[in-house]
Amino acid sequence: MPVKLSGGGGDHEEEARIEIVPLIDIMFFLLASFMLVSLSMTQIHRINVKVPQASTAVHDAKPPTIHLAIDAQGVTTWDTAIVTPTEITNRLKNLPVTDETRVLIAADEETRHKSIVAVIDAIRAAKVEKYGFETKTPSK
C-alpha cells in the first residue's frame, strides 16, 4: 500500500515508492564479489600427475604445508614452479620448520625411483622429518 505524502500547500499528491532496480544492482554486485572471493580461495597446488593406487592408503585429514609433485619425466614442481633438489633443500631451510611442517610428495606412477629418492634426500637434508606420498584408493 503506497504512503501518501502531504504538505507544502500543493494540491497534487505524491506516492512514496521504493526503487527496486538499484537494490537488484547491489545484490548482483555482492553476488559477483562473493563468487570471485570464493574462487580465489581455491588453491591449485601442483601439476596434474597420475598417482598410483594403494590398498592400504590412509586418509590424512590435516592438509600438508608443502606440496611437491614429480611427473613421469622426473620434473619436480613445488606448487606450480619447477625446482631442483638443491632448490628444495634451500627453500625448506628458509622456511620456519616446526613439528607440524609436513611435505606431501605426489609422484606419477611412471616416475623413476631415482627422481623420488633425490626429492627425499633434499627433504631430509633440510632436516624435515615428516613427509609422505600421495596415493589414491583403488576403485571398487
Rank of each mutant, 00 (worst) to 15 (best):
M1P: 15
K4E: 00
L5H: 05
G7H: 02
G7I: 00
G7V: 00
G8M: 02
G10V: 10
D11Q: 06
H12R: 05
E14S: 11
E15Y: 11
R17P: 01
I20R: 14
P22S: 04
P22M: 02
L23Q: 11
I24T: 14
I26C: 10
M27R: 01
F29H: 03
F34E: 13
F34I: 14
M35I: 15
M35L: 15
L36G: 14
L36T: 14
V37D: 07
V37S: 08
S38Q: 07
S38K: 04
S40K: 06
I47G: 07
I47N: 07
I47W: 01
I47F: 05
N48V: 11
N48L: 11
V49Y: 02
V51L: 04
V51Y: 01
P52T: 10
P52H: 09
A54K: 13
A54E: 08
V58H: 07
V58C: 02
V58W: 03
D60P: 02
D60W: 09
A61H: 06
A61W: 03
P63C: 07
P64S: 12
T65E: 15
T65G: 09
L68D: 04
L68T: 01
A69L: 01
I70E: 09
I70D: 11
I70T: 06
A72F: 03
Q73L: 05
D79K: 10
D79T: 10
T80G: 08
T80D: 10
I82M: 09
T84E: 05
T84N: 06
P85V: 12
E87K: 11
E87F: 04
E87M: 13
I88T: 06
I88R: 03
T89C: 06
N90Q: 14
N90E: 13
K93E: 10
N94W: 06
L95T: 12
L95H: 12
L95F: 09
P96Q: 13
P96K: 15
V97N: 08
V97S: 06
R102C: 07
I105H: 02
T111R: 02
R112W: 03
H113T: 12
K114T: 14
K114A: 13
S115H: 08
V117H: 04
V119E: 00
I120S: 05
I123V: 15
I123W: 04
R124M: 13
R124F: 01
A125Y: 04
A125M: 00
V128F: 03
E129I: 09
K130D: 15
G132E: 15
F133E: 00
E134D: 07
P138F: 07
